[in-house]
Amino acid sequence: MSKALLEMRGVRSAYDGVNVLHGVDLAVRAGQTVALLGPNGAGKTTTLRVAAGVQPISSGRLVLAGRDVTGARSLDLARSGVCLIPEGRGIFPNLSIRDNLWMMTFTGRSRGEIEEIAFSRFPVLGKNASRAAGTLSGGEQQMLALARGLATDPAVLLLDELSMGLAPVVVGRLYEQVAQIASDGVAVLVVEQFATAALAIANHVAVLVRGEVAAQGPPEALRTHLSDLYLGSSR
């Protein structure tokens, strides 16, 4: 089995002195999709932010492809191939789809290459390339966010709440794309509240409760215990 591309070892992190993560241990291998589940306020988004280098680590290590990069700038990590797609998509609503995609030329790729990557995976974006991103449906906006992420040629893809505000059918289609992305050798870490959708494509699941990984393992093993982990055991 391949080595982990993303590893978090005993990571602790805080906002203004308030601890949010209390020693998170997590690993994502190339081609693997790990779903990070948990109730509101468990620290899922913070975990992603730490992995992207956006949120500073109080203690513990962030290791990427065997290299300790604790304290590295998020910009350097992004250039190396760590891509965070934040909750709320982070697209520019007043710009067209094409303009949104062209933003990613900072990676050194040409406009043509970026459009090729985006439109081959999401043909609907190609058909509406001149439309303002703000006028797209929620699912199409999420596709655009994913396409922009893919344009950076990520080695590690961090997805925050892909399903937010979307119909289950659309979520299913988007997760099919995520599974395809992972099968190309990308390490995917998905934060999700819509557990069923994430469990359907994940190879590994970690449940975060109050800033700690309460349980992790294959989806089949955790599926039945999820409600206990979210709400606390009834016993």
Partner: peptide, 12 residues
């Protein structure tokens, strides 16, 4: 991609 990622991170 994983190998390239590892190489780029080594140079980082």
């Amino acid at each position: 991609r994983a190998e390239r990622f590892a190489r780029e991170l080594r140079d980082l």
